[in-house]
Design a protein around this nucleic acid. Sequence first.
RNA 1: GCGCCGGUGGUCUAGUGGUAGGACCUGAGCCUUCCAAGCUCAUGGCCCGGGUUCGAAUCCCGGCCGGCGCACCA
Length: 579
Amino acid sequence: MSDETAALDELARRRGFYFQANSAYGGVAGFYVYGPQGATLKANLEEAWRDRFVRREGHQEIESPDIMPEVVFEASGHLAGFDDMILECPECGASHRADHLVEDGTGIEEAESIPPEEVQEIVADRGLTCPSCGAPLSGQPVEEFNLMFGTNIGPGSSSPGYLRPETAQGMFVEFPRLKEYARGQLPFGVAQIGKAYRNEISPRRSLVRVREFTQAELEHFVDPERDEPPIERVADVELPLYPADEQQAEDGGQVTMTVREAVDRGVIGLPWIAYYLGVAKGWYERIGVDMDRFRYRQHLAGERAHYAADCWDAETEVGGNWIEVTGFATRADYDLRKHAEHSGEEFTVFRPYDEPITVERPTVDPDMSYLGPEFGGAAGDVADALERLAETDPDAFEGETVTVEADGESDVVPVEVTGFAVEEVTENGEHVRPHVIEPSFGVGRIVYTVLAHACREDTVDGETRTYLALPPELAPTTVGVFPLMDKDGLGERAREIAADLRRAGLSVAHDESGAIGRRYRRQDEIGTPFCVTVDYDTLDDDTVTVRERDTTAQVRVAADDLAATLASLRAGDLAVDDL
RNA sequence: GCGCCGGUGGUCUAGUGGUAGGACCUGAGCCUUCCAAGCUCAUGGCCCGGGUUCGAAUCCCGGCCGGCGCACCA
């Protein structure tokens, strides 16, 4: 563990940002508690996300269930794609994906869909060996491992369900109704902040890889042929990019260019992705991510998810490691198409033509009172065959009879009983399946990054000081209120002021214990941006000092103006220097 | 899941086959007119289970948890 991450985890434990859950029982890997400071920080971070990616973009937020039935994940591909077959080498102990071994060793494709028992047989029959040490793998058990947490819905096991591995499916599954709320108009965006669950094989690195975590996901449904992002809003934003070809080049590295350049030069293939990279960069800066430790990395071809056509990650550097904090993917129409196929529902939006068009459409209306007696049980199939034939080859109805194939036989039908006609039909538009642009944020990883990048040390009066330079918007506590001393009425006045500030909606810590310096340091360490001290001058003129965390500089402010001043400072409308 | 290393108050740590000390933090009190000052007192600990032993926090085995490497990461 690096010094940075060790120090961060220690601070997080000591000050209540986050810590391992269930430690009274020895702990369970991959589950964390956000403590009093951390829960508030996380909530503030989520609020900042909501502000930027929902409110300011005009999108809609929903909350869908954590548990969903099995069919959802059959449709989404998670049941098959998430279900790994693990094969362990008896000699060297290396674990391998059994389906990959079979694909590489036999040329069989999509071994993933083969049952594990058969995979095990194939491994034995073909004499496949361990890629690491060459030992034969015949007879080794193929273990199934699904990364989804399973459960049963209701009594018994007849209705299996799973804890969602991403919040996204809730937004896809409910698309038919969500589309109604968008009044059937593309584009529209649906967002969700919620828990997702993955039964990771090996949780690691504190908050970075856990089994239960919070995602903030936006699904932006767009018309793939017509909708363009408002790229001009972010055209000049500079993006630190790490494209796939740079990653594969010998001397490749990051390249910096504006959103406009990245689109024009084709570095980012899809303008929608470029748009969100631009928007998100501003947001990361706002929440205190260090831009010298930030990049957008393009996924390599082999790295993409089963649904993703192109993908860029936002990555932050902490303790010498790059952490994926956000994925920007285009899922195209994959999910909506899958759910349409599996559910039989419509996952499309009606797009009117500029002008209605008139088309000639061949139709049939078979006389079943003839087909029934003539063809018996095959009559229905014959009728269906006639309908298909009318669509594909209307000229076949020119003569006295038509011949169709049904039930493996050729059936001859007099044209006069088919009800064949060519109708003029007016079409007002068509049904289009939206494409999905998906920025998917890992909230916990961003919390972790923000804390790491906010850690500072400096020297005040010869003493080392540790503080968190959190943006005021995110800080769990906005202001600490202290009496210089708890006597001569200072304590009472401080309590009054604290109560006033709380009434004004500010998050306030009131502290009257011990030396004033200690109280400042306490607040510094949890990132409180401002501290107000009631001193003897307060008794004369009812002003207090406002001290800024990062500089420790102080200014005097009238108690009457305090709430408004602090609110402006928190919102960033005002700086301490302006006072 | 495999390998290596580790696990002592809230945090950081000392330590030995005879059941533990320090520092910081926290609480109470004293002192104190702006940056972790000082004094007094107090709370609080050997990851869990088994084995060896008269006796285990210490040695052994297993488990759990953590770090790193491998594998995995939709």
